[in-house]
Design a protein around this nucleic acid. Structure first.
Lengths: 202, 202
DNA sequence: ATTAATTTTGACCATCTGGTTAAACCATTT
DNA sequence: AAATGGTTTAACCAGATGGTCAAAATTAAT
């Protein structure tokens, strides 16, 4: 019975995730979520009191994917440059598998800033660990000293933006050819890495 | 009379722009637009048949601001590096003045791809001019040869993303301190420039 | 000044949407 | 087998929302 319970709740969450991410909070329809989940609409309200609650549940679930868990990679025993490579590679992969997620997050945060603070607390997002590590390398002398905040932002920008703006790029740069775009994303794993390296390699 | 006519239409468009950009298509309310414009709701439908029409008018108006007109700067007589500086500086300024615009554009495009193709036709967006120019400099030998598409995307990424993700950065990087964030954006004009230069300077 | 055309309004409508309720269903316990 | 407690459903509701319409107001033409 608890199996079934969980299964229903999960079905709802999955359906809701799909609906919310593709349509946004305002565009999402409770009926549609119910239908996708294969249940009655009233059952949604039985599990999650209202739309707001359901949304928050979904948002909380997916927020973590935006700021990468891959950060744990950074605590491994690899060399700094290997870590960098792993990070870029993995992050572009994750984003590419959930291409609509970033815009969803950014859009909802822009309209309801309160979502952010809660989600940040729940996730243990702390760029300071990484920042500290990079700075350490610089002090050690193995990297050129550059402003770390900008370095990190540049790295994230170059990974995230091409996914966020995918529809535009596909069209403007590659005449709507999906394969060319995907190929471009693959190439990026290498070039973003080189780009960063260029800036910090002594 | 034509003065007044235009004035009403403009009042509507301004109000609609504000409403659509802050709330998105689905979140925007016709009544709210009418109120903001200081007119009757029925008058909206008199000027623009329906919500869809009004939206398209607004979207068409603002789309151009996302891909910079500043590109014209690139056709000036400045040196390549000066052009680069001008572009980055100007673009970050524009985005900073309309911080909600990029997410609005990206969100709507993601949900209604057909918007994109129309808007692209209306605007004369052609990165190929710039790409060609950069390539020319490389052939000439004044720049290191790097993949131009990636270079341009990197440049745009580093300018746009920090604005798009402003709420998150302000919080995560600067503990919600607006001044620090603004200052960061100012610094970027310099650092993004240096980052790019690092990659292409021989 | 009268007519004609355009612009603006208040009242109204059909539909959609989130949410509720009371009853039915079902598994477990007694 | 009867009672219990959680789960699911069909039917329904109130409010919001995009959109319409006929009449009023304003401007332009004769």
């Amino acid at each position: 019975m608890k199996e079934l319970e969980k299964s229903t709740e999960l079905k709802i969450l999955e359906a809701a995730k799909l609906e919310f991410i593709t349509k946004g909070f305002d565009g999402a329809r409770m009926q549609q979520i119910a239908t996708k989940a294969g249940i009655n609409k009233a059952l949604l309200h039985y599990y999650f009191r209202n739309k707001e609650n359901l949304f928050k549940a979904v948002f909380g679930n997916v927020f973590g994917d935006f700021f990468p868990k891959i950060m744990t990679t950074f605590q491994s025993e690899l060399s700094f440059f290997e870590k960098l490579r792993f990070f870029i590679d993995g992050y572009i992969n994750v984003l590419n598998k959930n291409p609509k997620l970033p815009v969803f997050i950014l859009h909802e945060i822009q309209h309801r800033p309160e979502l952010l603070l809660n989600s940040l607390k729940e996730q243990g997002v702390n760029p300071k660990i990484i920042a500290g590590m990079v700075e350490a390398e610089m002090v050690k002398g193995s990297l050129k000293p550059v402003p770390v905040a900008h370095l990190l932002v540049n790295m994230l920008s170059m990974c995230i933006f091409p996914v966020v703006a995918a529809p535009i790029m596909r069209e403007v740069l590659f005449d709507g050819n999906e394969k060319k775009y995907k190929n471009f994303l693959e190439e990026r794993k290498q070039y973003v890495y080189e780009f960063i390296i260029n800036t910090i390699k002594k």
